[in-house]
Amino acid sequence: MKNRKLASLPAIPYVFWMALFVVVPLVLIVVYAFTSESGGFTLENFSSIGSYTMVFVRSLVLSLIATAVCLIIGYPVAYVISKEGPTFQRVAMMLIMLPMWINFLLRTYAWMSILENTGLINTFLSDIGIIGLINRLFGLSIDHLPLINTSGAVILGMVYNYLPFMIIPIHSVIVKIDKATIEAAEDLGADSVTVFRKVIFPLSLPGVLSGITMVFVPSVSTFILSKLLGGGTSMLLGDLIELQFMGGAYNPHLGSAISLVMMIIVMACMAVMNRFGDGEEQAVIM
C-alpha cells in the first residue's frame, strides 16, 4: 500500500461511530456523576453512595463466591475434557457452548421453576419424605425448603449462566500446551502431580485469568438474577443502577456515580489480574 493515509480512509465512518456512541456516552457518565440536576458541579452523588455500602459489599461477595465456584468446577472439567480425543472434545465444547445460545432469561426462568417453594426439588423432597424427616428430626413444621429468593439461588444462577465462560478459555489454553514440554518434564523425572503443578497449571494461567474476568464482570453487574432468583430481597449493584434509570427513583446523576464506581472496581480487578499474568496473552474467547 503506497499511501497509508488513503488506505486508512475506510475506517472513518467507524471512528466517528465509536467516538459518538462509545466514547461520548462514557464521558457523559463521568459528567453526570459530578453534576446535580441543575447542572452545577457536586460531589453529593458520591457521598450518597455511602448509604449503599451494603449493596456494594453484597454484590462483591456474591460474585466472588460465584467466580470461585466456577473456577473450582470449571478447571477440572476443562482439564479432563482436554485429555479426551478430538471428536469428544469438539462435541463436548459444543455442548458446553449450546446453553449460552439460549436466552439468558429463559435459562434463569428454568431454575425458577426448579427452585420454587412448590417447585421440582421441593415436590420431590416432600414426595420421598425428606421434608417430613427433617420436620421430625428438628421438630419443625415446614412444607418446603427455602431455595428460591435466597443469596444461594442468586449464586447458583451466576454459576449456571457463566460457567461456560470459565471452561472455554481454560480449555483453549490447556489444549495449546506443547506436548513436548510435558514429555520433557516427565523425562526429567517429574511425577504426574509435579507435572501438573509446575508445568500445566502455570501455563494455563492466562486462561484462568480471562475466565475469572469473564465470570466476575457479568456477575457483579447483573440485575436480572437478583430480581428473578433473589426475589428482590437482596439488592445488587445492577439493581441499584437500574433503579436510577428505569425505576421510580429516577436519578441518572446518582446512577452515573454508581456506574462509575462499579467500572473503577472492575477495572481495578482487571489490572490486578493483568499483573499476575503478563496481560499480553489474553486467551481467545471463542
Binding site: 475506517a11 471512528v15 465509536m18 467516538a19 456512541f21 462509545v22 466514547v23 461520548v24 456516552p25 462514557l26 457523559l28 457518565i29 453526570y32 464482570v217 457479568p218 457483579v220 453487574s221 440485575f223 445492577g238 443502577i241 437500574e242 434509570f245 441518572p252 446512577g255 452515573s256 456506574s259 462499579m262 467500572m263 472492575v266 482487571m270
Partner: peptide, 26 residues
C-alpha cells in the same frame, strides 16, 4: 483504536446500556 474497540466488549452490558441511555435522552 483497538483499545476503544475493546471497551464495549469488556464493559459490563449494564454500563454500555446506561451510557447509551444517557446519550439518547440528552
Amino acid at each position: 483504536i483497538m483499545q476503544v474497540n475493546n471497551i464495549p466488549v469488556i464493559n459490563a452490558d449494564i454500563i454500555t446500556g446506561v451510557s447509551l441511555c444517557i446519550l439518547f435522552v440528552f
